[in-house]
Simulated scan of single mutants.
Amino acid sequence: MRKIIKDLFFVDKVKIGDEEGLILSDQNGVPVPYDQAKEIVEKLVFFYEGEGAKDFTNEEQQREKLRYYGFDFETDGIFQHRGKPVYEWKEFRRDLKRNWGFDCACCGKKVSSKMDKGYYKLNMGYRFFVGAGMGENLKSEFSCSEDCIKVVWKDVLNQWLTNEGLKKYIQ
């Protein structure tokens, strides 16, 4: 949708007599010629007065916000963040002096280095969970299976989407 344009325009405040107004300037600060500026303004008015302009701009703002935070659900799906998987399979270290374990964050199954080969772990950092409003409420970022870690991730993601005002994208 976005295209590279030859000219980049800025809106500058100007004062003519006692009146304050706006003027289009190019990237060098030079005012755009009257006829060209008038054509641009007419196109802007046509767009913003048209049906769907508000919905279109809101939709684009939300998509841009998601991209800013590293999500592109249309291209990558919901299990990618900044082009990387949001979870990974981790094998238990075999050189542990003591067995280590946890309860699955989704189903509650006991997972331990004594009985299991490995586990699934969210790759997202703690700051993301705090930002999602899940800091203290997130039981664990560890799960027993891929199905369970996907459920945990969807819960975290949906909470974050709700907090960010992006409910439309809830999975």
Rank of each mutant, 00 (worst) to 15 (best):
K90H: 13
M115I: 03
R67V: 09
E136C: 04
E164H: 11
P33L: 06
E42S: 13
G70T: 08
E19L: 12
F142Y: 15
D116T: 05
I23R: 10
K65E: 14
F46Q: 13
T75A: 10
F128M: 09
C104S: 04
E49I: 04
I170K: 15
S112R: 09
Y126P: 08
W89A: 10
E88F: 10
Q171P: 14
L66F: 09
K114R: 15
Q62E: 15
V130M: 12
G118Q: 06
C144G: 11
G133I: 07
G21H: 03
K110F: 03
R63P: 02
D155H: 11
Y87P: 00
P85R: 02
V130T: 12
V86M: 01
V45K: 11
L66H: 07
C144L: 11
C106G: 04
I23G: 00
D147P: 01
G52A: 06
F73M: 01
K15E: 13
Q36S: 07
F129H: 09
I23Y: 01
G135C: 07
L157M: 14
N99F: 11
Q36V: 05
V41K: 02
D103L: 10
I4D: 06
F128H: 06
V86D: 00
F102W: 05
F102S: 02
D7Q: 11
W89D: 09
D26Q: 03
W160Q: 04
N123W: 04
L66E: 08
K54C: 05
N99R: 09
K168F: 13
F142E: 09
K6T: 12
S25H: 07
D12P: 00
A105K: 01
T57D: 08
D12H: 07
I149S: 00
